[in-house]
C-alpha cells in the first residue's frame, strides 16, 4: 500500500490549476478529496507523476442559490452537501444521497466533483444527477462549458470531460419532492442499486446507479408512470450491460432495480 513516487502541487486558483494541468498533460491528475484517487495510487493502479490539488480553491467550495437552481461547487464534500440548509431545503434528495456515502471520514473528505469525475458505476450521486437533470460546469483550455447530465456519463469510469477540463460546479434545479433509495453492497457499502426519483409536474424522473456500467434514466418507468408504483416493473426495460459479481448477478440485480424503483415511487 505504498504509492509510486509523485510530485504534489497545491493550486491556489482555478486559473493556476488549469495552467498546471496543461503544462503537465497526461502525467498529471487532479486531486480533490483523494478518496478514490489515493486508494488506487496505493494499489499502484494509478501512477500519476504529478498531483494538482484543487482542494484549496475556495471559489469551488460554495453552495449558492441562483434563481431556480442550487449551484454546488465541485469541491463541496459529501458532508457539506448532506448538512447544507440550502440543499436540504431545495434539493433534499441530494443530501439524502450524500448521507448514504461511505462513513463520516469519507464524507468529510470526498467531494461531489471528484465523485462525478471518477464515475464509479457503483457510486451514489449519478442517480440523483440524472433524475434532477443537473448540469455539470467544466472549465478547460477552451473555456467554460456546461454538460447535461444525460451526456455526462459515457462508460465505466468514463465521462464527457476532456483531459484538460476541471469540473467547477454542478447546477441542480430545485426539486419539490424526491427520494433516494439505496441497496448497500455488504462489503464496500457502495450501491448495488441506487434509485433517485423526483416528482416533476404529474410525472416522475428516475435515475438509476449501480445496475449497469453507465447510470441511466428509467425512461420506460417514467413513461408508464400512472401515479402508483406499478410502473416499476419496467425499470430494466431496454437496459443492457448489467453488472454481475458475487454479490448480485444480472438476474438478482435486475430484480433489485425493480424493487428499489418501486420503493422509490412509493416513498415519493
Amino acid at each position: 500500500m505504498i504509492p509510486a513516487k509523485f510530485d504534489y502541487i497545491k493550486a491556489s486558483s482555478l486559473g493556476e490549476a488549469l495552467t498546471l494541468l496543461q503544462e503537465h498533460g497526461d502525467e498529471a491528475k487532479i486531486l480533490s478529496g483523494g478518496h478514490s484517487l489515493i486508494p488506487s495510487m496505493k494499489l499502484r493502479l494509478a501512477t500519476p507523476s504529478v498531483l494538482i490539488d484543487i482542494g484549496g480553491i475556495s471559489e469551488m467550495n460554495t453552495i449558492t442559490e441562483e434563481g431556480d437552481e442550487i449551484v454546488i461547487g465541485a469541491n463541496c464534500t459529501h458532508h457539506q452537501i448532506a448538512t447544507s440548509d440550502l440543499v436540504r431545503e431545495h434539493v433534499n434528495i441530494l443530501s439524502q444521497a450524500a448521507l448514504c456515502i461511505g462513513d463520516i471520514q469519507v464524507r468529510n473528505r470526498g467531494t461531489l466533483g471528484g465523485s462525478l469525475a471518477h464515475a464509479d458505476p457503483a457510486s451514489d450521486y449519478p442517480a440523483t444527477v440524472l433524475a434532477c437533470e443537473a448540469t455539470i460546469v467544466a472549465e478547460g483550455k477552451d473555456g467554460k462549458r456546461t454538460i447535461g447530465a444525460n451526456d455526462f456519463f459515457q462508460a465505466l469510469f468514463l465521462t464527457a470531460l476532456q483531459d484538460d477540463e476541471i469540473i467547477t460546479a454542478i447546477r441542480f434545479p430545485k426539486v419539490s419532492q424526491g427520494t433516494y433509495q439505496k441497496f448497500f453492497q455488504s462489503a464496500s457499502r457502495f450501491a448495488v442499486v441506487g434509485v433517485a426519483a423526483i416528482k416533476k409536474g404529474d410525472g416522475v424522473q428516475i435515475g438509476v446507479t449501480g445496475v449497469s456500467g453507465v447510470p441511466f434514466r428509467a425512461t420506460a418507468v417514467e413513461n408508464a408512470y400512472d401515479g402508483t408504483s406499478s410502473a416499476a416493473k419496467h425499470a430494466m426495460d431496454g437496459v443492457d450491460d448489467i453488472i454481475s459479481d458475487h454479490f448480485a448477478d444480472e438476474e438478482y440485480r435486475s430484480h433489485l432495480a425493480r424493487v428499489y424503483v418501486k420503493r422509490a415511487l412509493e416513498a415519493l
Binding site: 462489503a187 464496500s188 457502495f190 459479481d245 458475487h246
Partner: peptide, 23 residues
C-alpha cells in the same frame, strides 16, 4: 451472513479486499 473467500476458475481471488470481502 457475510464472509467468503471467492476464487475464480483460474485461481484468481475475487474477494481480495474489503471492497469485496464483507466483514
Amino acid at each position: 451472513l457475510l464472509e467468503e473467500v471467492v476464487y475464480d476458475e483460474v485461481g484468481q481471488m475475487l474477494s481480495g479486499s474489503y471492497m469485496e470481502y464483507a466483514m
